[in-house]
Design a protein around this nucleic acid. Structure first.
Length: 282
DNA sequence: CGCATTTGACCAGCGC
DNA sequence: GCGCTGGTCAAATGCG
């Protein structure tokens, strides 16, 4: 959400009327003043009043602007609710299970242990994040029948399996697929069952299709069931990620996630309200 | 026979 | 430099 307007230098939110003493008609002045002084004082007060009215008008416009942006953001929130694109692996609790099977992204920090990660580990993560940002990476979680051992995720594209591997952190094998719908399409997909919940298939996509889907995708119907209970990333972390992502679509997705996080956060709402009212009535 | 899948071998990156 | 691990290759195999 754009809050930069709060610090706009051209907007003076100071509503104090200045240090002028109000002149009350009929009340005897403590000091004798001539008519010229009275006139100039009235003029000054009128000018102050005009200025205050002008400020009030501008503030109303700003408020309308904020409300408009807020409504626009709300509208985008509903769209973002079905977005599951993510570059990190802590995208959801369901996907948190998926996180443990994610490729390379956070293996080091997991091993070292969360906050105890060293500076070099952080550096490595940053490097990887930069590298991954070059190709669009998204993750899709699909709930399937646990008894179904096939690693089939129907997403509307044609895939050719080219490998399978058992990874260290997950007893379930990981299958490697390439898009076979178009020869020029270099999109890859990795599919692996979640280590913690084997009913969840985690598909990791790398790259973007340069062609249309072969048929309508059932993905949109499947995703929300997983995504609904998704605790989104902390806004700070998300902001850091947005800064390091170069793909416009990925950036937009992350920004939307961040917007959802912030607007759903009562503390954030309270803080914004306090900041606005504080500026207005201070 | 052609295509997709399977699976062991190979390669590259990384940490120690 | 060595070992571990994830990712990819390509020959073998299976299926329609």
């Amino acid at each position: 959400m754009e809050v930069a307007w709060l610090n706009r230098p051209d907007v003076d939110l100071d509503l104090t009327i200045g240090s002028s003493v109000l002149h009350i008609p009929g009340r005897p002045s403590a000091m004798k003043q001539d008519d010229d002084d009275d006139d100039s004082r009235v003029k000054t007060l009128r000018a102050e009043l005009d200025r205050a009215s002008e400020e009030n008008k501008r503030l109303k416009e700003l408020l309308a602007d904020v409300v408009g942006k807020y409504e626009a953001l709300r509208g985008r929130m509903s769209d973002a609710a079905v977005v599951v694109t993510a570059v990190d692996d802590d995208c959801s609790s369901a996907a948190a299970a998926a996180a443990s099977v994610s490729p390379a992204t956070n293996l080091k920090t997991k091993t070292v242990g969360g906050a105890a990660a060293s500076a070099s580990d952080e550096l490595t993560s940053c490097k990887r994040a930069r590298e991954e940002s070059k190709t669009k990476i998204s993750k899709l979680c699909v709930r399937t029948d646990p008894s179904d051992s096939s690693l089939v995720v129907k997403d509307g594209y044609q895939w050719r399996k080219y490998g399978q591997k058992v990874t260290r952190d997950n007893p379930c094998p990981r299958a490697y697929f390439r898009c076979s719908f178009a020869p020029s399409c270099s999109v890859k997909r990795k599919v692996q069952r979640s280590a913690e919940d084997t009913s969840i298939l985690v598909a990791t996509y790398e790259g973007e299709h340069n062609h249309g889907q072969s048929h309508l995708s059932p993905v949109a119907n499947k995703v929300p069931a997983i995504a609904e209970g998704v605790p989104v990333k902390s806004s700070k972390k998300a902001a850091e990620q947005v800064g390091s992502v170069t793909s416009p679509e990925l950036r937009r997705s992350l920004v939307e996630q961040m917007a959802v996080t912030l607007t759903n956060n009562p503390t954030f709402k309270t803080a914004v309200a306090a900041a606005i009212s504080g500026r207005m009535f201070h």
